[in-house]
Write a protein that binds this DNA or RNA. Structure first.
Length: 364
DNA sequence: AAAGAGATCAACCGCTTGTGT
DNA sequence: CACACAAGCGGTTGATCTCTT
């Protein structure tokens, strides 16, 4: 309450932008920067609300926007990041240089979501459909086990969050320093360029320069960093980290994607996007799965194998084996994060501590 | 060639968050 | 601390385009 609607004034135009309007907006921002969006339309001579202008600028007119078809690599990155972050489109967009959150959101809703669904993967949870996992016998035990695992994960991640609080401070300091130097060299009339992320910090930049040709480890690490430094609040960061930990359990499925992707790279595909000359096929790696080259079972095998292994462990009462498995699993994830963080020249203090630093199962 | 269905994506809406007073 | 405002964000809509019959 008390907040006036953004387009309360009558006579403000809505709907598609005309080239003339685009030109006015572009010319004004190039000359003065956007400044206060609410007052911009009047100054620029536009019959639009500030919100509409901001949207038009950020989603369409901004010079650092790449338009057109998403590359295979971008698709893969989106899927991975969505598994970790959920529908946090702006966060995902920070890891896809020159792509807007709106564009990514649209692409997810119109392409990727459907593909995953067709493959029998729940696009929300990124898990194989629940019916594939829940067998009639022993499902209760599995649910209890899953809950225990989740609880374990939450405890473990909560402990790690303490270390990440420190990282958040460091990341922000780095981002501040980077943006200060960027502003000093930015063009006079344009808004300050977003801080580059190459130095390991400032990953909340919409034009992050993080290399996406790197392994998924880099993605995971950068996402965790974003959760630390780019989150809106501590609670959001906590939620992000917990979600990330939970979603990381789907790593085997992601690995299957990678495998399918590699196989596809060796195929003589046509219709390759010009920017994907590195061998990315324009048909999309999921098509490989859909056309039968790689069966659904192939895709599901890694995840299913894990589930099966756990079920067997249950049957055998082998809690020891399971504990080892989980420990190894989380160790491997952390190693990925640490390796990536180290290679990104993060200070030694920024490297996430290994589970040995604190007991994986910890009382609150 | 025309009509209908489906896909796409720019833009809007309303809520949340951050910040200043 | 409470409030107001600006900006950001994600969900949704609707116009337009493309494909299919």
């Amino acid at each position: 309450m008390g907040r006036s609607p953004c387009c309360e004034k009558e006579g403000l135009k809505k709907g598609p932008w005309t080239p003339e309007e685009d030109q006015k907006l572009l010319a004004y921002i190039e000359q003065h920067g956007h400044g206060c969006w609410r007052s911009l339309p009047a100054k620029a001579g536009l019959q639009r609300c500030g919100k509409s202008c901001r949207l038009r600028w950020t989603n369409y007119l901004r010079p650092d926007i790449k338009r057109g078809k998403f590359s295979l690599q971008e698709e893969q990155t989106i899927i991975q990041l969505h598994a970790l972050l959920g529908n946090r489109w702006s966060a995902i967009a920070t890891h896809l240089p020159k792509r807007t959150d709106n564009e990514i959101k649209n692409y997810w809703n119109t392409h990727l979501k459907k593909r995953l669904a067709k493959m029998g993967i729940d696009p929300v949870t990124h898990k194989p459909r629940s019916d594939a996992l829940a067998t009639s016998a022993g499902s209760t035990a599995q649910h209890a086990k899953a809950a225990a695992h989740l609880s374990h994960t939450a405890q473990w991640e909560s402990a790690r969050l303490e270390a990440e609080a420190r990282l958040a401070r460091e990341a922000k300091l780095r981002a501040l320093a980077a943006s200060a130097s960027a502003s000093a060299s930015a063009p006079l009339h344009l808004p300050p360029a977003p801080a580059p992320a190459a130095a390991g910090g400032g990953l909340d930049s919409p034009t992050s320069t993080l290399s996406f040709s790197d392994s998924s480890a880099a993605t995971l690490a950068s996402v965790l960093e974003a959760a630390r430094g780019g989150g809106r609040s501590a609670s959001t960061a906590l939620a992000s980290v917990l979600e990330a930990a939970h979603a990381a359990a789907m790593q085997p499925v992601q690995a299957a994607f990678e495998e399918a992707f590699k196989e596809q790279q060796q195929q003589p595909w046509g219709d390759v996007d010009g920017e994907d000359a590195a061998g990315f096929a324009g048909t999309g790696f999921t098509d490989l799965l859909l056309d039968g080259s790689l069966s659904h079972q192939d895709v599901m095998r890694p995840a299913a194998a894990r589930v099966d292994a756990e079920a067997e462990a249950d049957a055998a009462g082998s809690q020891q084996q399971e504990t080892e498995e989980e420990k190894n699993y989380w160790d491997s994830i952390l190693n990925l994060v640490n390796t990536s963080a180290a290679s990104a020249s993060l200070p030694a203090s920024a490297v996430v501590p290994t589970p040995e630093a604190y007991s994986p199962v910890r009382e609150f």
